[in-house]
Simulated scan of single mutants.
Amino acid sequence: MNEIINVLTNPDSFFKKKMTERIHFKIPFFIVILNALLGAISGYIMVKAILSSAAVGVGFASIGAIGGALGGFLGVLIVWPIYTAVFYGLSALFGGEGSFKRSLEFVGYGYIPALLNSIFGLYVINQISASLQATAADPAQMAQMLSNDPLMQVATLVGIIFQLWSANIWIFGLKNARNLNLRGALISVGLPVGLLILYSLISYIGGIA
């Protein structure tokens, strides 16, 4: 628990200490797996609610929901090394030195805020799924309903806040893992994360327009 608190409140000090230790994936992998499991549950609930409301049949809705769960689970696992590869590649432009494995380990710790966001997101999806199942509409109409839903809009803003929190952890994780100055780490993480946040904001503005 102390490790979790330290990485959330003082990531630079936390990762400096970690640099003196061997690479261990146990805790970061556990963090990412928890995120993946929550993503799977959210995917299952959301896809089943959408397909059920579209009256496609119970069997097809169940199969689609399983596919949504699998996609939610694998999506989180796949994004972890992708994020690391992007940060790692960009940091090379600033003379970054250090192993990919160390970077992967430290990026895993940055998923702690995402875990908190996943818990909130699961609550939101649970609240929305009941109303979706009670509404007869095609998937395109469902997508529009979701983007206009005030609770989903709040979830988008909350998600951006947690994304920024994760980015802060990743900046200091990359700074230590790749032996960068703060500016190099900030750009290496801030550029891709900033683009993702910009996309989220555009989607949010489109939903409330």
Rank of each mutant, 00 (worst) to 15 (best):
Y83Q: 15
P81C: 11
I50S: 01
P150H: 10
G159P: 02
R178C: 06
A49M: 00
I205S: 02
I66Q: 03
T84N: 02
N35E: 01
V76M: 13
M46Y: 11
Y88W: 03
V32R: 04
S62D: 12
Y44N: 14
V76T: 12
I119N: 09
A167Q: 04
S99N: 08
S166M: 14
A137W: 03
M145C: 03
I169H: 11
K17G: 12
L186P: 00
N148I: 03
G184S: 12
G67L: 11
L93Q: 08
W80M: 05
L116P: 06
S52N: 08
R22K: 15
E21Q: 15
S203T: 14
G207W: 12
I128P: 11
L146A: 10
V158E: 10
K175W: 02
L90T: 00
S200L: 10
L122K: 04
N176F: 00
S53W: 06
K101D: 14
N10C: 05
A92Y: 04
F29W: 08
I112H: 04
S42D: 05
I23H: 02
I202H: 09
P113K: 05
F100N: 08
I187G: 00
Y199W: 12
Y109N: 00
L132W: 01
G190T: 04
G43R: 10
F100V: 13
W165L: 09
L77M: 15
P11M: 04
S52I: 00
A40Q: 11
G194W: 02
I63P: 00
I78D: 05
A65C: 08
S99M: 08
A130F: 11
F14P: 03
V56R: 08
T156Y: 02
D12P: 02
I125G: 06
Q127R: 14
K175P: 00
I23L: 07
I112T: 14
L104C: 11
